[in-house]
């Protein structure tokens, strides 16, 4: 079955891009207390939380966490983050962007010039009486999502992203940020033509049962998620696709190195899967 394309790669893709080393993340209490000070707290609380995968710091009602492997940082207001209040959220997107930028500017986690607003998302709340089924829906917060740019090239993937949450009182209630430092330049690589990716994908898609539709086609630096140690920041092509087979559908991504030379794998081994199981006895 032919693949249907609802999205295509950008028309202008650079002929070559730099590849950067990514140093191990700085993971320490000081990172968290510095962030706390930057956003107006004292940084002097004595409440630290240590676990095998993260460090935490709490001051007042704000909790901060940094993941050891990736350096992903989060901040949550314990009483406000994600909680529906009497006051409905009605802050326009432009003001949300301004509030979030001011917060990010003070937080100093990354240069603001390297961030591009992608979208203002919202946390929605809804409820209904079981009998009457009249649904009441309202907004609970805004999540301003910023994507990273490196040398004006967008960063794609689960990392290279920051979300600032803003509550109905126009105060920042949360932050999620995975923005690895780009270290020294290790190479400049030529970019492979996107047609090669399409060819490889269509070969893989020929095995699927049902109809395949590409819903996103992206080129950019690829940044991994919060569970992964990344050593280089290098270019990739990504296709996000949906396969529909009768009433069942699934969505996945096809990601490949875009440089003539690849420095690291973009797909790793499974992190948690335990492998085959001993056969369970079926009931009589």
């Amino acid at each position: 079955m032919a693949v249907k394309y609802e999205a295509k790669f950008p028309r202008t893709i650079p002929a070559s891009v730099n590849v950067y080393e990514v140093p191990a993340p700085a993971v320490s209490n000081a990172v968290l207390t510095t962030l706390a000070k930057n956003i107006g707290l004292t940084g002097a609380s004595k409440t630290y939380i240590t676990s095998t995968d993260a460090l935490g710091y709490q001051e007042g009602r704000l909790s901060f966490e940094i993941r050891r492997v990736s350096g992903a940082i989060s901040m949550r207001h314990e009483d406000k983050y994600g909680i529906q209040t009497e006051k409905a959220f009605d802050i326009p997107d432009r003001r949300c962007d301004a509030i979030a930028r001011k917060f990010l500017d003070s937080a100093k986690l990354f240069p603001l010039a390297s961030a591009k607003l992608m979208r203002i998302t919202h946390l929605h709340g809804a409820d209904t009486n079981r009998k009457e089924r009249k649904i009441t829906e309202s907004l609970i917060d805004a999540g301003a999502v910023y994507r990273r740019l490196v040398d004006e090239v967008p960063v794609i993937g689960p990392g290279g992203i920051a979300m600032v949450n803003i509550g109905a009182d126009a105060k920042v209630t949360g932050l999620s940020c995975l923005w690895r430092k780009a270290g020294k330049r290790v190479a400049k690589v030529k970019i492979l033509p996107s047609a090669r990716v399409i060819e490889a994908f269509e070969k893989a898609a020929a095995q699927f049962k049902g109809n395949t539709t590409v819903i996103q086609a992206e080129f950019g630096y690829f940044e991994q998620g919060p569970l992964d140690r990344q050593t280089t920041l290098e270019p990739a092509y990504a296709l996000v696709y949906v396969v529909r087979n009768g009433d069942v559908a699934h969505k996945s991504a096809f990601v490949v190195n875009a440089g003539e030379r690849a420095f690291s794998k973009l797909v790793g081994n499974k992190r948690f899967a335990k492998g085959d199981q001993k056969l369970r006895k079926k009931p009589a």
Partner: peptide
């Protein structure tokens, strides 16, 4: 009597 749900 009631259900409440939430999503982003």
């Amino acid at each position: 009597e009631w259900f409440a749900w939430s999503w982003r």
